[in-house]
Design a protein around this nucleic acid. Structure first.
Lengths: 222, 222
DNA sequence: TAAAAATCTGGCCGTTTGGTCGAGATTTGG
DNA sequence: CCAAATCTCGACCAAACGGCCAGATTTTTA
């Protein structure tokens, strides 16, 4: 939820520069909004409470985001961009075990690092995805189809057990996402307060082991 | 979302009997409420819209559920009861492959049969589970611990590959739940409008195959 | 330093919210 | 068939809602 660390307007002195205030407030408000949207949903979120979370008067929020919809869609857009940019690729030339292990690990890390983003995305889809229809049938569909194609190529080349490639991607998505979205539930089951580095390793190891073995692959020693 | 089919007050003639109107309205309202809560969350749900969905005046909803919280908690309670009653068991004496396959299948069927219930449960947990804290650290925790114990016994007896039993249960929960909760997303990826019987079979087969193989078990031919 | 642009914010508006009330209609057991 | 219990529902209320505006303040440009 932070602006790119490279900003052409940055000055060594940190002095005022155009847009600095704007960028800061935009980030503050969007972070506050994401938390509020996750807790109460789009309709249940209150601009007054978002303003309180951000430490700003309500009218100031409306100065940057005249309508609630704009704010919500901005937050959602940022999440989609984050997911698109940070997720590992799968290449036909890669070793299936290595590539899948790396893919699972990057998805686990992403989920653990941005739980609020993950939850808001989940919320939107569970509620019928009124703002993501185009994304789901467009970008995401092609993204998944491409990865499924790679898996299919591996299978055709006899480099892994034949499993439905689409369902495999969906299952990786489902399990990794689950730990972020349902952290309240999973942490209670694990008897922990919050995830630590060890727990994250344990979970990444488990998922890699289960899924790779399920694909008839030897999990690489990490 | 329907009342127990066995009702001691039932009469062969179907004539009026005490509580008949009440039972009917209770069910109508709770179904309408579940749909509204899934679409807009607790805070975003409007009693007026719930009344509209149920085809009743708003004041009539308040007659049965004086406060919004009561209505929400009633719906949640019903879902938890449904989950508790319909899920298959795991017994130490069972054959691991058979038992796990049956467990996965029953969870898939439950998710596909009650998507709204599944979604509302997910929503509550993602939003911080303010109404399920006791359930998560109590009943559910013991339920999961018992099943994990059975899996551990199987492992100790050398009847399956050693995997973290808790994470295994969580992963089964995650994948099966995902198909119900994220149906909007999964259906778009599969290029379908809605799940049919064939799709449900395909998904249950895939999950059984992936997870059982991942546990070093031979998936039973179904 | 003066003008211009950007930012800030208290107060206001019409609408929707959860919830109340009480009078009237319906259903029930006796 | 009647009195009691149950159910129906339009009208109403205070609070919270999203959004608007105009004047005050700060920051940037020239």
């Amino acid at each position: 939820m932070s602006v790119s660390s490279f900003d052409p307007r940055a000055t060594p002195t940190g002095a005022y520069r155009p847009g600095r205030i704007r960028d800061e407030n935009l980030n503050t408000i969007m972070s506050a909004a994401a938390a509020e949207f996750v807790q109460h949903g789009y309709r249940g979120a209150s601009i007054q409470r978002i303003a309180d979370r951000a430490g700003l008067p309500k009218a100031n929020v409306h100065y940057y985001f005249p309508r609630k919809t704009h704010l919500y869609q901005s937050v959602l857009k940022e999440i989609v961009a984050l997911w698109n940019s940070e997720l590992d690729e799968l290449q036909v030339d890669d070793d299936p075990a290595q590539a899948l292990a790396r893919f699972i690990r990057s998805k686990v890390r992403l989920s653990f690092l941005h739980p609020t983003a993950s939850k808001l995305f989940a919320l939107e889809i569970i509620s019928g995805a009124p703002n993501l229809q185009a994304y789901l049938s467009g970008e995401l569909r092609e993204w998944v189809a491409a990865r499924a194609g790679v898996v299919q190529a591996w299978i055709d080349a006899g480099r892994m057990r034949p499993v439905d490639p689409l369902q495999l991607i969906v299952s990786i998505w489902a399990t990794t996402q689950h730990y972020a979205d349902f952290d309240e539930q999973v942490l209670k089951l694990m008897g922990k307060r919050r995830y630590d580095a060890a727990a994250m390793e344990q979970i990444a190891d488990f998922l890699t082991d289960l899924i790779l073995t399920g694909c008839g692959l030897e999990p690489p020693v990490s």
